[in-house]
Structures are given as structure tokens and as C-alpha cells.
Amino acid sequence: MSEDKEIQDFDRIEKFLEGKLSHEDARRFEAAMNEDEAFRSTVEELGILFDGIQYTGRRAMVAKMAVWDSEQDIEKEREPKLFLLKPWYKKYGFMGIAASLALLMGFFIFFYNQTPSSEELIGEYYERLFIPGVTTRGENTNRTIKAKAQIAYNNEDFEAAIVGFETLDPSMVSNEDRVYMGLAHFELDHFDEAIRYFDMIPKDETINYGRAQWYKGLTQLKAERFDDARYTFTQLMESDSSYRAKAIAILEEF
């Protein structure tokens, strides 16, 4: 049989299997199958092949969809979890919105209380030192200048206090004065200057050192340098300073 005839016969079988023959042609085709077992066998074999090819195509499509699934699931994993609130909104309408807002407020209040701002912590833990026994006697001497600076400090005139302390002969400035200098800068938000003065206090001056470290930590907190503040308070916590208990307490809060 020539190839053209073969292709012609194949086309006819294909049309039958695809249901594309006319009613009359299909009836004749079935009659031919009933008379010729070999022909019937060929038709059935080709039918299985066509089904198998479709099956192959479907399997490829399913494999493609599995890839899309995993891509989408990965994308979903990366989405912020807050998006999970969306179905509530859709499901419960206005009440869902109200409930979601209440929940968000709850979260906000919860975290607000759990992690106070640096400003709140300063408000809670900072107590400005008052300089006791200040005298103005002996004007125009170093002592007088120092006294004026101390008065200015006590009167919360921190700029005048700083100017006064800085004009003093360095030999007249005690470590206690340096703590006050640091606190004056702290009050004016001169964070680096404040820390510079607190760092001048040597470790062997136990009382002033502990005090200076405590205020250094508060300065770092006020400057929102939280890691630095945590480190300073941790060092203080591990010392014998009278500020140790305060350091432990504040470390629990941020």
C-alpha cells in the first residue's frame, strides 16, 4: 500500500475516533470494523495511542501547575502575616473591621506597654541630682565661679552652669563636678559631651563611677542608642554599684 493511501486510511480512522465523521460515514466505518477483526484491532490500538498522547499532555500540564503552586506558595510565605486579617474583613463585614481594629489596638497597647519609648523610660528613671550646700561667698574667685555654676545648675540654667564650670581652673574641678557637667549637657541633649564627662570618672571612685555610668546609660537611652545603653546597664548590673538594682530594673523594660 502506498504511503498516500496509508495516510488516507489513517485520516479516516482519526476522524472516526475524534467523532468527526458524518453519521452515515460512521455507520459504514463501524460495519467495516465488524467485518474485519484486524481493522478493528488497528482502530483500537490507535485509540489507545491518542488517549495516551492526551494523557501525556495532561500530565505535562499538571506538572506545570505544580510548579506554579510552589511559586505561589513561596510568594505567600514571604507575605507579611498581617495579611491574614483580610478574610475576616470579607467574612464579617463591618463587625469584622471593628474586631480587626480592636485587635490591632490591643496589639498596639500591648506592645506600647511592653516596650516603652526612651522618653518614657527617662521620665520614669531619671532624677536630676541637686548640688547641696552651694555658697556664693568670696566673689571673683574660682570658688565663686564654681559656686555660680552650681547655683545656675540648681536653678536649671544649664548653659550658664556649663560656661561656669568650663572657665574653672581644671585643678578646681572634682569628679563630682564632672558628673554635674555631664548632667547639664544631658539636660541640653548634648549627648556626646555628656558621655565624655561621665567617662572621665575613674573606676576606683566607686560612688561617682557608678553614678556616672548610670547617667551615661540614661544619656544613651535618651539618644536612642539602645544597644549602647543596654551594654552600659549590663556592666553596671554586674558591678557592686548602688545603681545595680536600678540597672536590672531598667534592663527588663527595653
Binding site: D51, Y55, T56
Partner: peptide, 13 residues
């Protein structure tokens, strides 16, 4: 049996 045949065709493809 059909499933087996379909898989056979798939492998042959």
C-alpha cells in the same frame, strides 16, 4: 490496565 497503557504510551513518547 488502561492506566498502565497510558503510562506506557507516555514513556514511549
Amino acid at each position: 490496565q488502561q492506566e498502565e497503557m497510558l503510562q506506557l504510551v507516555e514513556n514511549s513518547m
